[in-house]
Each structure stands twice: as structure tokens, then as C-alpha cells.
């Protein structure tokens, strides 16, 4: 028992000695060398405490600023975070705080959102709508070179979010779900899906939602 206790005491002494040594090294690093340079200087020591504190603080701020600017300049990641994210966001957003929510959202989602809002505004709330596929959004009409849509809002749940309470049916559900048999409107995009309507439409009708029952058509 005694031997174990002695051994533990020796171990403890070693640990304490090492810790004292390491903390001394740290003190040397931070205190003694700095003291020798700044704080132990007799002129510095004779200054009032608040002046010493202020000088120490200003020194620390100056060093921190140099380090922060160096990090911002040398690292692409931090440069992006500060310049492109923090500063730019504040600059861009601050003057536009009056813009309504729909305008803010359109600035992020573009023409695709405009299309969804148009469908929402031109269909009744109880409509069951056939919603186009990604290919319909991205394939331009025959007489155009490029589609104005990028198709990022082609997913059903996204369409449901903006068209609610209207019901949305997508291509893979045709003939599978009971809702696909109750379609009241077909979404036409880039001129696609006109063939799903039981009646003829004008050739230059590219984007919108048309009722499956021609009697429900209202002039736009």
C-alpha cells in the first residue's frame, strides 16, 4: 500500500514539475519577453495604469487587424465569406427593403416562379392541374432557340407549395392515381402539352394553363 502511495506521489511530483515548467515557458513567451520589450521599460512602468492599459489594448487591436486583414487577403474562403457574403449582402439588400415578398422571391427563382404565379392567378382554387416535366420547361418551342425557364421548380412538391390549394398531377401519375382522372387544367409551357387538350389551341399559345373543358375557357 505504502509503495503504491509513494509511487503515486513521485508521479504527481513529475506532473507538477512538468506543468510548472510548461507554464513558465508560456509566461516567458508572453510576459518576460513582452515585458522586456514594453512593459518592463521604466518609462512605460512610470506611466499611469490606464495609459499602459490603453497602449496594450491599442497594440492588441493593431496586431489583430493585421492578422484579420492578412487572413482575408490570403484565404479565398474567408475572402468570399467577408467580401462576397457579409459585406455584399448588406450592401445589396439594405436599399431594397421595400420590395414585396413576391418580388424578392422572383429575384431568386426567376421566370419559373413568374410562371407558377401566373398559373395560380389564372386557375380556380379547386383546380386539378397537370404540371409539366423538367424537359417541358427546358426544351424551347420550335421557333425559339432557348427556353426562358431553367426547370428548377419542376418538382411536384414545389408546385404544390405555390399552387395550393389546387391539386397538382405530374406525368408519372397519369392513369395511376384517382386525381389524374380528374384533371381540370393542363399547364402549357414552351408550347408543350397542348396535345393533351381535347380541343385545338392557337399555335402561338406557349405558356399558361388551359381548362380541359373548352366550355370553361375564358378570354385572357
Amino acid at each position: 500500500m505504502e509503495a503504491i502511495l509513494n509511487e503515486r506521489a513521485v508521479r504527481l511530483k513529475i506532473i507538477i514539475r512538468t506543468e510548472v515548467r510548461t507554464s513558465r515557458i508560456l509566461s516567458l513567451l508572453l510576459q518576460t519577453k513582452c515585458d522586456r520589450m514594453i512593459f518592463s521599460n521604466t518609462t512605460f512602468k512610470s506611466m499611469p495604469r490606464w495609459v499602459r492599459l490603453l497602449l496594450g489594448n491599442l497594440g492588441a487591436v493593431a496586431v489583430a487587424l493585421v492578422v484579420l486583414v492578412a487572413i482575408e487577403k490570403t484565404s479565398d474562403a474567408y475572402n468570399w465569406t467577408w467580401e462576397k457574403y457579409v459585406v455584399k449582402n448588406l450592401k445589396v439588400i439594405s436599399p431594397k427593403l421595400h420590395v414585396p415578398l413576391e418580388g424578392r422571391l422572383t429575384s431568386k427563382l426567376g421566370a419559373d416562379l413568374g410562371y407558377l404565379i401566373f398559373i395560380r392567378n389564372t386557375t380556380p382554387t379547386n383546380a386539378v392541374i397537370y404540371y409539366p416535366t423538367m424537359a417541358d420547361f427546358t426544351t424551347p418551342p420550335p421557333d425559339k432557340e432557348k427556353s426562358i425557364f431553367n426547370g428548377r421548380l419542376h418538382e411536384k412538391l414545389i408546385a404544390v407549395r405555390f399552387l395550393y390549394p389546387r391539386r397538382v398531377v405530374v406525368e408519372s401519375e397519369l392513369g395511376v392515381t384517382s386525381w389524374s382522372k380528374k384533371l381540370t387544367h393542363i399547364c402549357i409551357v414552351n408550347g408543350h402539352n397542348r396535345d393533351m387538350l381535347p380541343y385545338q389551341t392557337e399555335d402561338d399559345f406557349y405558356n399558361g394553363a388551359l381548362p380541359t373543358d373548352s366550355l370553361l375557357m375564358t378570354p385572357l
Partner: peptide, 22 residues
């Protein structure tokens, strides 16, 4: 800046629109 950006833009990211927010 981050707070302002968060509340300024309504939900627009795909994962939220096709999930959590909807």
C-alpha cells in the same frame, strides 16, 4: 448581415421547397 439576408428572402432553396417549408 446574415440575419437580414435570412429574413429578407422568402424560402427559395430546393430542399426546403421540396420538403421542410412546404
Amino acid at each position: 448581415s446574415n440575419f437580414l439576408k435570412t429574413v429578407y428572402f422568402p424560402v427559395y432553396d430546393r430542399d426546403s421547397l421540396a420538403g421542410f417549408d412546404t
